[in-house]
Simulated scan of single mutants.
Amino acid sequence: MGVQRGRDLLLKVEDGAGFSTVAGLRARRLSFNAQTVDVTDSESAGRWRELLEGAGVRRAALSGSGLFRDQASDETLRAAFFSGAILTYQVVIPDFGTVTAPFQVTALDYAGNHDGEVTFEIALESAGAVSFAGL
């Protein structure tokens, strides 16, 4: 896989008729994390830490920032935040695949300078199983 343009990393939200791109995003980030379960005891070889395979909580986090360009996607995100709804989102990673999962909007920030446009930042946390489909 060669170098890819950052703008091709897309965040999409299910809108009932499929997935629509969240418009206006200038930056997007997808992170995967897993907690570990430490099972080290006094009989661990060389007192090295031991971890329990397959245990712990896994999660995915999405974040993005940008400006308002599409009233429909702006309203979808705003409504999801204020209602606490869990919607299905999809991240398209160019020449790699798609990640699809239910997420909840955990932060929605608005900002603006007197001589510039209104911008927003959004953070989402996974709320269920995450699936990956390769291209």
Rank of each mutant, 00 (worst) to 15 (best):
M1T: 08
G2L: 09
V3I: 12
V3G: 10
V3T: 13
Q4L: 08
R5W: 08
R7L: 14
R7K: 15
R7S: 15
D8M: 08
L9W: 02
L10S: 07
L10W: 11
L10V: 09
K12G: 04
V13H: 06
V13P: 07
V13S: 04
E14M: 08
F19A: 04
F19M: 08
G24W: 02
G24V: 10
G24N: 11
L25D: 05
R26Y: 10
R28K: 15
R29Q: 15
L30C: 05
N33Y: 07
Q35H: 11
Q35V: 07
Q35R: 13
T36D: 13
T36G: 14
T36N: 14
T40N: 07
D41G: 13
S42L: 14
S44H: 11
A45N: 13
G46A: 12
G46R: 12
W48F: 15
R49L: 15
E50K: 15
L52R: 14
E53L: 12
G54V: 06
A55R: 08
V57T: 14
V57R: 14
V57S: 13
R58C: 11
A60Y: 00
A61V: 15
L62E: 10
G66V: 07
G66S: 06
G66Y: 00
G66Q: 03
G66L: 08
L67A: 12
R69W: 04
R69G: 12
D70C: 08
D70M: 05
S73I: 06
S73W: 02
S73L: 05
D74S: 09
D74L: 01
E75L: 11
E75F: 05
L77A: 02
R78I: 08
A79T: 10
A79P: 00
A79S: 10
A79M: 01
A80K: 03
A80N: 05
F81S: 07
G84S: 01
G84T: 04
I86V: 13
I86D: 02
L87K: 11
T88Q: 06
Y89D: 01
Q90S: 04
V92P: 03
I93W: 01
I93T: 02
D95G: 01
D95Q: 03
D95P: 00
G97D: 00
G97S: 02
V99K: 03
A101K: 07
P102I: 02
F103Y: 08
V105I: 13
T106W: 04
L108E: 06
L108M: 06
Y110W: 06
A111G: 12
N113C: 01
N113R: 04
D115H: 11
G116T: 11
G116A: 11
G116F: 07
G116V: 09
T119D: 07
T119V: 06
F120W: 00
E121G: 14
A123V: 04
A123N: 10
A123I: 03
E125D: 13
E125M: 03
S126V: 02
S126Y: 02
A127N: 07
A129R: 10
V130R: 00
V130M: 03
S131R: 05
F132A: 01
F132Y: 03
G134D: 03
L135N: 01
L135G: 00
